[in-house]
Amino acid sequence: MVENRRWIDILTHVVLIVGIAIVALPIWITFVAASHDAVRMTQAPLPLLPGGHFWENFTATLFGSGLSGTEIAPVWRMLLNSLAMALMIAVGKIAISIISAFAIVYFRFPFRMGFFWLIFITLMLPVEVRILPTFEVVADLGMLNSYVGLSLPLIASATATFMFRQVFLTIPDELLESARVDGAGPLRFFWDILVPLSRTNIAALFVILFIYGWNQYLWPLLITTDTSMTTIVISIKQMLEAAEQTPQWNIIMMTALLAMLPPIVVVITMQKLFVKGLTETEK
């Protein structure tokens, strides 16, 4: 029994190492390409070890004018646009969803569950399905080429509302009664009790929604006509299309590397709360 268990452990670790290698290999190649000059990346065979031009490429990419031969904004500006969009989407979704769930669970009003199911049904209508009427509304309101236009149509989230509702349903009614006895009103109960108890769930949702907003492509591509409002995901696609004329793979890979950093920082910073928010079942 001990020998069988040992072989199972070895096999598990081998599979895990192979899986990590498969995931990490593209990232390593991106890092290597970002550390060589443009000429070396057009020669065969491609290098597998880092070069000596990393900081040079970093400075030229982040603070330069972007890929030569393309009409795109500086990389720092596109990173800022993506960061603003991702933060507004994540914070907006969480704020609207937690307030909606609070109203549905703790207030009694006509058609309360009907409104909840109307919110839930919107899961069947992603932005890709309603993109034309959404674009018309945003254009009529003059929100093209703006952070509000980038984020506002993507803020509503039925999934987050459902998740917060399920969290609030697990909170004992005794807490609500105790708050009433102490003279706490609805807002005091919300801020002092519900929000702290939902901290791990908020963190888990923030990580998921931040990455969701950061990786948006179709909607920003549709409503941004000004290059100063271009997001980093769109810029990488434009760089790849321009690579046939200007094969500066060191700049392209450095841009891709920079685009990975904010989501990685968010995941690492909130890792413990993220895991707890997805795994804990009781308050």
Rank of each mutant, 00 (worst) to 15 (best):
D192G: 12
L221A: 12
T246R: 15
Q271H: 06
P263T: 05
Q248Y: 15
A203E: 06
V207K: 04
P220N: 01
I268W: 13
I193Y: 00
Q216A: 12
V267T: 12
A204I: 06
L218H: 11
T200I: 14
E177C: 04
V167N: 12
D173N: 13
F206K: 01
K237I: 15
T225Y: 14
I236D: 05
I234L: 06
A179G: 11
A203G: 03
F190V: 00
K237C: 13
T246K: 14
I202E: 01
F206M: 03
P247D: 03
R180W: 03
D182K: 02
L176F: 12
V267H: 12
I264A: 09
P262S: 04
G213W: 05
I252L: 09
P172N: 08
Q216M: 10
T269P: 07
S178N: 15
K237F: 15
I268G: 14
A242G: 15
V265P: 13
L209K: 02
R199V: 12
E177N: 07
R188K: 11
L222R: 04
L197G: 04
F210T: 00
Q238H: 10
Q245A: 14
V267W: 10
L194P: 09
L240I: 07
A242C: 07
N201M: 08
K272P: 06
I193N: 00
Q238M: 12
V167T: 10
N201L: 07
P262R: 02
D173G: 15
K237P: 15
E241F: 00
T227R: 15
N201Y: 10
M239P: 08
I193E: 00
E177D: 08
L257I: 01
I252E: 01
L258R: 05
I202G: 02
P220E: 02
P196A: 01
D226S: 02
W219E: 05
L240W: 07
I211Q: 10
M253C: 10
I223M: 02
A259R: 13
G183W: 00
A179N: 06
D173S: 14
L209N: 03
P186A: 02
L218T: 15
L187T: 11
V181C: 02
L222I: 13
P220I: 04
Q271W: 05
W249T: 11
T246D: 12
S178V: 13
P220M: 05
L258T: 03
T255S: 09
F190A: 00
V266H: 03
I236K: 01
D192M: 10
V233W: 08
L209D: 03
G185T: 01
N250W: 11
T200V: 14
I171K: 05
T231S: 11
L175T: 01
P262E: 04
F190M: 00
T269H: 11
M260G: 13
V181Q: 07
E244R: 15
L218M: 12
F168A: 04
P220K: 02
M229F: 15
S198G: 06
V207L: 03
